[in-house]
Simulated scan of single mutants.
Amino acid sequence: MDYRVVLDPAGERTWKGRCVSGDEEDCGAESLVLGSEQAPTDWMAVHTKQTGHERFERIYKDYALVRKVE
Rank of each mutant, 00 (worst) to 15 (best):
K16W: 02
W43V: 03
K16H: 09
M1Q: 12
T14E: 05
P9Q: 04
K61H: 09
S31P: 02
R67T: 07
V33D: 08
K49I: 07
V69A: 06
E30N: 07
E12G: 03
R58H: 09
T51H: 09
H47M: 07
T14Y: 05
R58S: 06
I59T: 02
E70M: 10
D62A: 06
E37F: 12
G52H: 10
K61V: 09
M1H: 14
D2I: 07
R13F: 04
D2T: 12
Q38H: 10
W15H: 11
L34H: 01
L34W: 04
T51I: 12
H47G: 02
Y60H: 12
T41M: 08
G17L: 06
R4A: 05
R18C: 08
P40W: 05
H53Q: 05
D42E: 13
E25T: 12
C27F: 07
T51C: 10
D62I: 00
G52C: 08
T14D: 03
G28M: 11
E57H: 11
I59S: 01
L34Q: 13
F56I: 05
H53G: 03
M44Q: 09
G35V: 01
C27S: 06
V33L: 12
E24G: 04
Y3R: 13
G52A: 09
G17F: 06
K61G: 08
A39Q: 09
K61D: 03
E37Y: 10
E30D: 07
E37I: 07
E25N: 07
W15K: 03
L34Y: 01
Q38T: 11
K16P: 00
C27L: 08
T14V: 14
D62T: 06
G11I: 00
E25I: 13
V66C: 08
I59H: 03
E24K: 11
H47S: 04
V6K: 03
K49R: 15
M1S: 13
G28S: 10
M44W: 01
T48Q: 14
V6C: 01
L34R: 06
L7A: 02
G35M: 07
D26Q: 10
V46N: 09
V20E: 03
T48S: 15
T48D: 02
K68P: 00
S21C: 12
G35S: 10
G17Q: 02
H53Y: 07
Y3P: 00
E57K: 13
K61P: 00
E30G: 05
S21V: 04
G22Y: 04
A39D: 10
A64F: 08
T41P: 00
Y3H: 14
E24V: 15
T14N: 04
R67L: 15
C19G: 03
V6P: 00
R58T: 08
F56Q: 01
D42A: 12
D26T: 08
L32N: 13
G17N: 02
R13H: 11
C19Y: 02
Q38W: 09
D8I: 00
Y60S: 11
E30S: 15
K68L: 10
A10K: 11
